[in-house]
Design a protein around this nucleic acid. Structure first.
Lengths: 200, 200
DNA sequence: CTATAAAATTGACCATGGTCATTTTTAGAC
DNA sequence: GTCTAAAAATGACCATGGTCAATTTTATAG
């Protein structure tokens, strides 16, 4: 009885083999993506390169999108962490400049952008994945920026609201980038007036 | 020679049969959706109900998503047209109320919301479909609203920018609705403070 | 070392979207 | 009517993501 209780509390044991297989799958996928991009990735190729059976893939990842969540989420998090390490922006213009690497990756492929949006919020707390976590991460970052006195902002608006707004405008600017009618302007050029208007 | 030129200028002739088949496919799809929603739709079921072969479906629609673009786009356009017919909002609160039917449909299924976002901008002018058109339609609507003196807005911001901002916040509010961490608040409740802050 | 239960892996198989060479139908010329 | 070329429709077939009963591997108790 005690044993059963302990078992329920403990995380289920993971064999070293599991970690090894998982690492093989992730690195195979990463290699393929570096060669041909995210959209072109095929599960078949991943398992072939990793040297495992197809079924193994799906016992490590719920579906193909879950792998994408891992890979894209990891990259987004790396980029955000780098941005966090930099100085806080003192203007809308500097903010756009700081966000440039994030925007560059998120708009590198339409597919990447779509996956990012689709996984930005999880339907259940227990399903919060890497991409959803980066949304929390960039909310924290924006909150830090707007509460820094170095950045002049509208005092009448709650910092949390300001931060969420930055996120909304960033996504809007990236969305319009994929639209033929608006693609003459770069994401950054479009984002700056939004933020200027929102923050001051 | 003249004939060839004329042919090039003319739209390619469409047989009555084509329109009939297309109508059969659309109504079959509509019927299935009314019964089980958008996500559950299967091409196989559509052609079965319409009484045509599978290949026929794909000579009428580029792919399954193109059918969804038609169906969802048509519904969105209907809703927007009804909203347009109503009175312009005199406050952020009234604006949210006016948008309620649009929001209700767009968030009725996660799948519907995803398709809407994916088709909101077309990669090429020639590919602008029904959903992309509704985005132009709601931009026009928002522009009409913010230029109406009955709605007090920040005069320092260009009306076009204000209109795009409303769109950005509406999408942000709907996105967060699908996120477990934020689903305790309704889309409308979340949208209102955004618009309040943005417009005044 | 052996037995055994749990964990991990396997690959044949399925579900579903999508293609294309072939066949059928239609419109128009004579 | 009948001939012909273009348009439309067909369904066998393919591509790819995903499932699951059966098998192999691992950890561990005795």
């Amino acid at each position: 009885m005690v044993k059963i209780l302990i078992k329920e509390i403990m995380a289920k044991p993971v064999q070293a083999r599991t970690l090894k297989t998982r690492a093989k799958l992730l690195s195979a996928a990463q290699g393929l993506i570096e060669h041909s991009g995210y959209e072109a990735l095929r599960v078949e190729e991943v398992v072939l390169k990793a040297g495992v059976a197809k079924g193994t893939f799906f016992s490590h990842f719920k579906d193909k999108d879950a792998l994408m969540d891992q890979l894209i989420g990891a990259r987004l998090s790396e980029i955000l962490t780098e941005i966090e390490a930099g100085p806080g922006p003192k203007s809308a213009s500097e903010m756009v400049a700081a966000l440039k690497p994030f925007i560059a990756f998120a708009t590198s492929e339409r597919y990447v952008f779509d996956i990012m949006l689709r996984y930005s919020g999880a339907a259940a707390i227990s399903e919060i994945g890497p991409i959803a976590q980066t949304f929390m991460q960039h909310f924290e970052l924006f909150l830090k920026w707007v509460t820094d006195p170095a950045l002049p902002t509208r005092a009448t608006i709650a910092p949390e609201l300001l931060a969420e707004g930055i996120s909304a405008f960033m996504i809007q600017a990236m969305s319009l980038n994929f639209c033929a009618l608006h693609s003459s302007v770069s994401v950054e050029e479009r984002l700056e007036p939004y933020l200027e208007a929102w923050l001051s």
